[in-house]
């Protein structure tokens, strides 16, 4: 696969550190004391029950929202507002309805990209996400899955130091989902970037991530806000075997952590 477009300078992957991050809305504690250090180039999967604060945490990292207390730093530099070293893939596609998919993806390019270069990059990305033939369509003319892939292409266009993706494959059918996972890994291998992604799919988390972070509320203290319940390092290197039996117990553990009873036995 070639996603190299030499003229666009390749940004380096950047480390992210969260220390004591809390977020309170009105008097509702959503996040409490989240501490996490992400190495440059690492892939982190964030899982947790619906409504536990995963999207909120991503918004803190990208600077779209600021923590009530605690601090976030990218590459050692504190995040104080929208941080363009970060590229965001939202939970919804958020495409501008009056633009074609290609024009939408062009929005993701960094400032000062030469026009022809940017177009080449976007065309290549749209081809990679399987939208080459749909690039001149408007969002309302395409399916939800196609829109989500277009928004992925837009997030990738920037070669960000940090890529935060909120359920990037949630609206995709199973086959396309697997293809997009592989695409993301290909891009990651070709262009160094740190990826923090939210998913509801434990298998996806285990296939993509170096570490899986489980976010949740302490059952002993309900209403106290979500924090990190566990961090699971996934053994082996990518690309992983989707059928890897050695991951079965991790899967069971994580599902257990999400509150799913798996009937898994350890002997």
């Amino acid at each position: 696969m070639s996603i190299a477009s030499p003229a666009l300078s390749t940004a380096a992957a950047l480390g992210v550190s969260l220390s004591g991050v809390s977020r309170v809305f009105d008097s509702k504690v959503v996040l409490r004391d989240v501490d996490l250090t992400v190495a440059p180039g690492e892939i982190i999967a964030l899982i947790g029950a619906s409504g536990c604060g995963k999207s909120t945490l991503l918004r803190q990292i990208s600077g779209l929202d600021l923590p009530s207390s605690g601090a976030i730093a990218i590459n050692g530099e504190r995040v104080t507002g929208i941080d363009l070293r970060c590229s965001v893939g939202f939970q919804e596609p958020r495409l501008l309805p009056w633009r074609t998919l290609e024009q939408n993806a062009l929005l993701g390019l960094p400032r000062g990209t030469a026009k022809s270069e940017g177009q080449e990059r976007v065309r290549e990305l749209l081809r990679l996400v399987g939208l080459a033939d749909a690039s001149s369509l408007r969002p309302r003319q395409v399916s939800g899955g196609m829109a989500q892939r277009a928004s992925l292409a837009r997030a990738l266009a920037r070669r960000p130091g940090v890529l935060v993706l909120d359920e990037p494959f949630g609206a995709l059918d199973a086959l396309t989902r697997l293809q997009m996972q592989d695409l993301l890994l290909d891009v990651h291998a070709a262009e160094p970037t740190t990826i923090i992604l939210v998913t509801h799919d434990v298998d996806e988390a285990l296939y993509l991530a170096d570490r899986v972070v489980l976010l949740g509320t302490d059952p002993a203290a309900p209403g106290s806000g979500a924090s990190i319940r566990s961090i699971t390092a996934v053994p082996g290197s990518r690309p992983r075997d989707r059928g890897d039996a050695t991951l079965a117990h991790l899967r069971a553990e994580l599902l257990e952590g999400l509150g799913v009873h798996t009937h898994h036995s350890n002997h």
Binding site: L131, Q141, S143, M146, D173
Partner: peptide, 14 residues
């Protein structure tokens, strides 16, 4: 079952 051969092949306008 769903007629998807590859990603993108369904990219025909409604």
């Amino acid at each position: 079952t769903y007629g998807y051969s590859a990603a993108g092949s369904e990219a025909t306008p409604p």
